[in-house]
Simulated scan of single mutants.
Amino acid sequence: DVFAGTPAADWPAGAAGIVLPPARPTGGFTGAEVSAGLARVRAAMLTARLDRAFMTGGSPAPLLRHVAPAARESVRKDWSTETIATYATRLAPDARLTPDQPRTKGRFTYRAVRQADGVRMLEVTSNFVWVYGFRDLASRSGHSVVVLHDEIVWRLPHAGDVARADRGLWLHRMSSYGSGVDCDAVKLGLIRPGGLDPAGIGSPEDPDALYDPEHPIELPVSC
């Protein structure tokens, strides 16, 4: 088990770790609308962080299907930059995951907000840690673990307040850190094991603390 001995050893595997909160009416959104919005966020996360075909593919198309038509150009611009790694996992061509399903743990919060132009928004914040097992010939064990922690603010405008092209998911704000990742690859929007570890030599950080979804998302040392 590639995760044995790590804090993620007993975490849920894959999609089982992404559990939605109860949907309640809020700020002009019905319970059904909140439920649908939460489900859309979860579906986008499943593609962005857990879909192996997407993670190893060369196209943003599977992820674009989850966001509003008017928001898709921003995702395309992020595709080959370090920004994409903030909210999606693109594996470097030479990176190979182990057969183990990634482990994940985190939580959602949501609220209704109103923009200055009067548009009502359902704002969903996801705060999750993703732990991947990689084949790693440079490691004595033959494998290694990469930890990604992201906090993403998603927004869904009320369908009655916007044009059709603006309906759907928008990435409003995102931030993240990684542990055990190759920083040169991250600059290209790619993930592979190795390189800088924010809890490495000379850092007071406990490596296991980086697995905690409540850990501050800003690190003094990062890619």
Rank of each mutant, 00 (worst) to 15 (best):
P21R: 08
D78R: 00
R24K: 14
R24A: 09
G106L: 11
G58N: 13
R52G: 13
I18R: 01
P22D: 05
D78C: 10
L64S: 12
P12K: 06
P25V: 05
S74A: 12
T81H: 11
G57Y: 04
I18A: 04
R40Y: 02
D100Y: 13
A70P: 00
T86C: 13
P102W: 05
P22A: 13
P69C: 07
P60G: 01
R42D: 11
E73H: 09
A36M: 03
G28C: 14
Q115S: 08
P69S: 06
E73C: 02
I18Y: 02
G14M: 08
R96W: 06
S59I: 04
F29E: 02
P93S: 11
R96F: 06
G37F: 09
R111T: 09
A43S: 15
P60R: 00
R65I: 10
I84W: 03
T81V: 13
R24E: 10
A48L: 11
R24M: 06
P62S: 01
S59C: 08
G31R: 14
A95H: 03
A15M: 04
T47I: 14
L97R: 07
R107T: 10
L97G: 08
L97C: 13
Q101F: 07
I84R: 01
F108N: 04
D78I: 01
S74V: 10
R40T: 11
A36H: 02
S74Y: 08
M55H: 03
L91M: 06
T56Q: 15
R42L: 13
P93L: 12
S59H: 06
R103Q: 14
A15H: 03
V34H: 01
T86I: 14
R90H: 14
A39V: 04
R90I: 09
P21I: 03
M45N: 02
T56N: 15
S35G: 11
V19D: 05
A68C: 12
L64D: 10
A23V: 06
R72L: 00
P69K: 07
A44T: 03
A85P: 02
A88W: 00
E82S: 07
E33R: 09
V19C: 08
S35C: 05
R107S: 10
K77F: 07
A16R: 03
T109F: 04
A32M: 06
Q101H: 08
D78Q: 06
P21Q: 05
A16N: 03
L50F: 12
P102L: 05
V41E: 01
V67Y: 06
K105V: 15
P69G: 12
A95P: 01
T47R: 02
T89S: 11
T109E: 08
S74E: 12
L46H: 11
P69F: 07
A70H: 00
A36C: 09
V113G: 10
S35Y: 02
Q101N: 10
L63H: 01
G106H: 06
R52I: 05
G31V: 05
L50Q: 07
D51G: 05
T47S: 01
L63E: 05
